[in-house]
Structures are given as C-alpha cells and as structure tokens.
Design a protein around this nucleic acid. Sequence first.
DNA 1: ATCATTATTTGGACATAGTCCAAAATTGTG
DNA 2: CACAATTTTGGACTATGTCCAAATAATGAT
Lengths: 154, 154
Amino acid sequence: MDNSPEGLLRSHGLSVTAQRLTVLQTITDYPHITADQAAEVARKKIGAISRQSVYDTLNTLVEKGLARRIQPMDSPALFEDRVGDNHHHLVCRSCGIVEDVDCSTGYRPCLQASDDNNFIIDEAEVTYWGLCPKCQPKSTKSQAKQTPTRKAKS
Amino acid sequence: MDNSPEGLLRSHGLSVTAQRLTVLQTITDYPHITADQAAEVARKKIGAISRQSVYDTLNTLVEKGLARRIQPMDSPALFEDRVGDNHHHLVCRSCGIVEDVDCSTGYRPCLQASDDNNFIIDEAEVTYWGLCPKCQPKSTKSQAKQTPTRKAKS
DNA sequence: ATCATTATTTGGACATAGTCCAAAATTGTG
DNA sequence: CACAATTTTGGACTATGTCCAAATAATGAT
C-alpha cells in the first residue's frame, strides 16, 4: 500500500536514512548513473555522504530488487530504478550514452538459446551497440567534431 | 592464403614476435581466458613476458579483428579467438564459467530492437545467465557443497 | 521521551584490472 | 649489416570497487 520511498525501504526490511532516500531519488532522477556520479548528485542534495555509503546503498538496493545494475563494456557499473521488466539497453559506442529498449518480441526474448549447454537459464541480457543520433556522422558535414565522454573504439 | 599464425599477424600489418604468437596461441587453447591468466599460460610457454605486453597484444588483436573481448558483469575482460560470427555467451552465475552459444534465430538475432531510439545499431550482444550443470542443485542431495570460483550473487 | 539494540555510515587502507610513459630491445627493410 | 620503426619492459599511476573497525543514527521496548 505504502508506495512512498520510505515505505519501499521499510517493506524490504531496510531502515530509512537520509542517505538511502537520497540515493534512491538520485537513480530515479538519473537512470543509468554511475556510483560516483550518484555520490556527486547526492552530495548536492544533502551536503555530505560518503562514497562507501553510496556503494553500500546501491548494492543493497540491487540485492533487494529495488534497483538494477548494468555494466556495459568499458563503463563502470550503471544503476537504474526500472526493475522487474527485463528490458534491454542501447549503448552508443562513441559517447557511451545508454537508453532503455523494451523487449523486441514481447516477453523474455531470446530466452531460449539455440543450445543451452544444459545450463538452467534465467535471464537473457541484450545489449545493442551503435551510434546515438548525436554521434552519427552527419551526411555531408564534417564528422570529426565530437566531444567523446568515452573512448571511441577503433 | 597463408593461414599460419605468422601469416595472420603479417597480413594485418603486425610484426611477428614470440610474445604475439604465444598470446595468440593461448587464446586459441583457452577461449574465454582473462588477460592475467593468459599471461600465466604464456609465461609457461616462453619463460617470460611482461604483463603490459599481454595487454598490448590482446588489445591489438581485438583492434585487428583477430580476437574478441567480452566482459560479463563481475568478471575481468575475457578473450576468445572465435570472431566474425557474432555468437553469444552463456555465463554461470555461480562459478562464472562461460560457454559459446550460436545465434538462436540464425543470423543477427534481435538486431531489430523494438525501438531503436534513432541509434544506428551494429551489434546485438546477448548474454544468457544461469547455472551450469555442475552448479545446479542436485535433486534431493545437499546443494551446499560447491567450490565457487566466483562470488555467488544473492 | 529514553535507553538499549541493531543497523548504518564513515574514512582509511587495500585490491583488482587496466593504462601511461620513456627507455631498452627486437623486428623488418634498404 | 645497419637503420628506422615497432614492440617490449617495468614502474608508476588511475579508476572502480571492497574490507574493516570505530562512530553514528535508527528502531523497538519501556
């Protein structure tokens, strides 16, 4: 019933602290944020929070199923509060921006591997790689002037 | 025409060195190996090789398309020499072992995301998560006795 | 409201994976 | 063979994250 952030924490057996509320709010405001970026944002909101506390909180939220961690190659872990729907991600090879994408085939796409090697599969994680609109070479214009926040491959 | 490891390196504009040959051989022998493990193996073969050299070689091989790098969550980068077929991977959540799986739908599976957010998508990377045969709880027997080489989630 | 208990937070040290850099060694070339 | 270009080496450094014990804050019971 209680859908507030406080209720969410309590219903998962967690005590309510300013740090947790702030970190929770932060990943809601900025999905796909890194731990260190989240710490920065949180500090602006409540003045001070230790790095360790941000890591702890994020790990706890993931454990309790209140947050999801993804980790595209060449990127530190990213956190988002969209959970429970097994959506996928689209990552720009140039600037690293991440967008959500829904499952293409409706539900649990690709969960049947062609040969499961006798594994018990519980999740198919799909990462689409490409170039975001901003990083795409513009038709005739020069394509050299970008400000990559991430090392471009190749 | 020259299909030897030496020819492979030369045809990609790389000079042939003992270090490169050894690292190349190593990822062929041990697909899904980490850089540090590859260094260990390589040292057994040729006596000595610097850590940096292994990293350099692996990066070069990936750049030249002679190797592929994958990076499952909570794992250092893994290297394999199977390239050019965009196959996928099956990862055990308990012991971390990685197996190859072919594309379920034949070619470029899932490459059509439901909504591409105007990205130009060039690859769909699929990681299947689950439990390998060895790590699966056996029917009625105790399920506590495993030797996890990787921190189990939960 | 206050106290005791338990959970959380903090800061500092540590670990791991990987990169940067300049000097030394090796490879390919004329 | 000798020279130029490439590669290798080792040491310092960076980034991301974890471990630990002490200090602090939150919760539950008076």
